[in-house]
């Protein structure tokens, strides 16, 4: 039975690993040179590990089924030294050198200068994203999404507002922690158009599981358009429902935590909602941005995302709630 399991195990290995090749959050589904380099390293290591495992198990099986007379190799210390000492040292030396060359490749002097910088702060439990101008001043602030121009090197400054978080977009790069008191910088270069999911990778309390974001790579012209739109203030509502929604937003204290540029709402505690309708998700990757999800979120965010810092607003009902959600959805 044991041998049978081993065999199946060995057969299952490559198939199962192949399946992992896909998925919006798989590091093996590479969208950048860096992620691709790591993916190649991974595949080579998987293959080598598979071979070594099979060899060791085969050897153990052969040893256990050895004929009555002792195989001569077994009794010699030299053999143990060769297989257990010399072989690993040779293999590991090669692997170490290769791994180090990948480690060193990312941040050397050869890489192009960054096109621009983005400051990302991890907060319990969402991502505050601020695009910075050449002088380091904030251009605009958004939440839970990054957009990048294809092929340009962007540097992301990672900080934390409370506890340790970790910024991880598997499709583009390895993770880097966000630690209070530290600024860590992660260079990102998206190699092709696409959208990748990222998620907090360091346990950060309560709703750690519900702290995701998206990164979208756009062709340069599209990206420029997006930047310009983001920098603009919120559009004036063009219908009665929208105006009612905005009035409710401003009258109910929402502006204490949220900013909507172009209105008196200028809170900085929660996400900037100036263009919330244009973001793919609300609640840090929790739900798609739609009128219905916005309404559900406003009434009782803690039900959707336990321990969330936003208080519930059961005061909004019926028409009021619809108007508020409609206005927020219109902020594209």
């Amino acid at each position: 039975m044991r041998r049978h399991t081993f065999t199946r195990f060995a057969e299952a290995l490559p198939a199962a690993v192949l399946a992992a090749c896909s998925g919006p959050q798989s590091p093996l589904d590479a969208g950048s040179d860096e992620a691709a380099g790591i993916a190649i390293l991974s595949w080579v290591m998987f293959a080598a590990a598979g071979l070594i495992l099979v060899a060791v198990l085969a050897l153990a099986a052969a040893a256990a089924r050895a004929p009555a007379e002792q195989p001569r190799w077994a009794t010699r210390e030299g053999w143990v030294v060769a297989a257990g000492l010399v072989f690993p040292i040779v293999m590991l030396s090669a692997l170490l050198a290769w791994g180090l060359s990948i480690t060193g490749g990312g941040g050397g002097a050869s890489s192009p200068p960054a096109a621009f910088r983005i400051a990302v702060a991890g907060e319990q439990w969402w991502w505050r994203v601020t695009y910075l101008g050449p002088d380091g001043s904030a251009l605009f602030s958004t939440a839970n999404e990054l957009r990048l121009p294809i092929g340009q090197r962007v540097e992301v400054d990672l900080t934390s507002a409370d506890v340790i978080h970790s910024f991880w977009v598997p499709g583009l790069a390895g993770k880097l922690d966000m630690i209070p008191g530290h600024v860590n910088t992660l260079p990102l270069v998206a190699g092709r158009a696409g959208t990748w999911r990222g998620q907090c990778a360091e346990y950060c309390g309560g709703a750690h599981a519900l702290m995701a974001f998206t990164v979208t790579a756009l062709p340069a012209p599209d990206f420029e358009r997006w930047m310009a739109a983001q920098a603009a203030p919120a559009a004036e509502p063009d219908n009665a429902e929208g105006r009612r929604g905005r009035a409710l937003f401003l009258a109910s204290g929402c502006g204490a935590c949220h900013a909507v540029r172009g209105t008196p709402a200028s809170g900085t505690i929660g996400p900037d909602l100036t263009h919330v309708g244009g973001r793919p998700t609300i609640g840090a990757g929790l739900l798609p941005t739609q009128r219905g999800t916005l309404a559900a979120w406003i009434v009782d965010p803690g039900h959707l995302k336990p321990e969330v810092r936003m208080p519930p607003f059961p005061v909004f009902r019926g028409e009021d709630l619809r108007a508020l959600a409609a206005w927020l959805e219109s902020l594209r």
């Binding site: 590091p27 790591i38 390293l41 590990a49 590991l92 692997l95 791994g99 990948i102 598997p170 390895g174």
Partner: peptide, 16 residues
């Protein structure tokens, strides 16, 4: 797999 996660770039993807 321990040797794998000892590689800095691979660990960047698989840590945590």
């Amino acid at each position: 797999t321990g040797v794998m996660v000892a590689m800095v770039p691979f660990d960047g993807q698989t840590h945590d």
